[in-house]
Every structure is written in structure tokens, then in C-alpha cells.
């Protein structure tokens, strides 16, 4: 298991912005991989159809590519991406309404529920980014516990990590507490 030093999402965003602006194609591809799920989750949470979701996804990335050099604080890139996707998604929804298309549910009901969903999508991105950047064994433990698509028992997780099964439960609480401290510093819960 690799040892990592903690690098915040803001630092990673700064580094990726610098890479893209200097013409590094790998930096752009990593940006798409890092934040693609967030961009697509936002129109989906609004209940837009797949065609609209795809359009929002593409226009958001086009806008990012076009405007990246104008972003004064690259550390705020994840927030900027979410805001841009939200803006394009709301406009797609308004367009559908103007066209007379049936929107997924009553407008107020949709907006009330969707707002929670949009914020949840940003929170989930921040949580995942923070786990990915945690140093040491906590990162591996939390990824296995919460993000592995296989249903893993404590015994299986202990096997993968090479630790005693009895240490997985206490480790879960300890690592979640460490993650909570990181998220507190990074502003989860502060809208």
C-alpha cells in the first residue's frame, strides 16, 4: 500500500489548472476523470433526460476549457465546475419547460428535492477527493469499506490490508474521525 502525503483538492486543482494552461494534455484528461462524475451527477439530480445530461456535460467542459485562464482562484475549481454545470442544467430545464416538454415532477417539488441532491453530489465529490488524498492505511481502508463495488466482509478487508480482522472496526472509527477532521478544515457543511 502506498504512503501519501496529504494534498488538498484545492492544491490538486491548482496543479491541474497550471498543467492545462501550459498545454499539458494529460492534465486536461485528469481534470475530466477527476470531476466528470460530479458534472454528470448535477443534471441527473435535476431529473433531466439523458440527451440533456449529455449536452450539459459537454457544454460544461467546453466552458471550462474556454474560461480556465480567467479563473482567478484555481483552488476553487471544483466549486466553479459545479456552479457551471448547475447553470447549464437549470437552463436546459427552463428550455424544456418553454418547449412544453413534461418535466419529471412538479416544479417546486423538483427544485426542493433537486437542490438537496445537487449539494449532496458536491459533498460526495469532496468526500471522495478527501479520501483519495488521505495518507497511509486510512485511505485504503475507507476505499475498501465504502467505495469498493464488491461486498467485502471485515475478514476479506483484513486480508487485503494484511491486518488482523479485529482491527478493522476500530480502524473504521479512527479513520472516519480523521476524515471528518479533514472535511471540517475543507468546509464540508459550510454552504
Amino acid at each position: 500500500m502506498s504512503e501519501r502525503t496529504e494534498e488538498s483538492p484545492a492544491e490538486i486543482a491548482r496543479e491541474l489548472c497550471r498543467g492545462v494552461l501550459s498545454g499539458n494534455p494529460e492534465a486536461w484528461e485528469r481534470l475530466v476523470e477527476q470531476y466528470g462524475r460530479l458534472v454528470l451527477a448535477i443534471p441527473r439530480e435535476l431529473g433531466l433526460g439523458e440527451d440533456d445530461c449529455e449536452e450539459v456535460f459537454q457544454t460544461t467542459w467546453l466552458a471550462l476549457y474556454r474560461d480556465l485562464h480567467r479563473i482567478e482562484r484555481p483552488g476553487a475549481l471544483p466549486k466553479w465546475i459545479a456552479t457551471t454545470a448547475r447553470r447549464h442544467a437549470w437552463r436546459a430545464l427552463e428550455r424544456r419547460k418553454r418547449d412544453g416538454a413534461v418535466v419529471p415532477s412538479g416544479e417546486e417539488e423538483l427544485r426542493g428535492g433537486a437542490v438537496e441532491g445537487l449539494l449532496a453530489a458536491e459533498s460526495r465529490q469532496l468526500i471522495h477527493d478527501s479520501i483519495e488524498e488521505m495518507p497511509g492505511r486510512c485511505r485504503d481502508l475507507l476505499l475498501l469499506l465504502f467505495f469498493d463495488r464488491r461486498p467485502l466482509s471485515y475478514a476479506a478487508i483484513a486480508g487485503e490490508l494484511g491486518v488482523a480482522e479485529g482491527s478493522v472496526g476500530p480502524g473504521r472509527v479512527r479513520c472516519l474521525a480523521e476524515l471528518a477532521r479533514i472535511l471540517e478544515r475543507r468546509g464540508l457543511g459550510v454552504d
Partner: peptide, 16 residues
């Protein structure tokens, strides 16, 4: 509140 948000986010798993 932060912990509840964290636990709720984790229960959802990764974004699709």
C-alpha cells in the same frame, strides 16, 4: 451535522 453529512455521503457510495 458534519458527521451525519459524511455518513450519508458514504452510504451513497461513489458518484455514478
Amino acid at each position: 451535522e458534519l458527521l451525519d453529512r459524511l455518513l450519508a455521503g458514504l452510504s451513497e457510495g461513489p458518484l455514478p
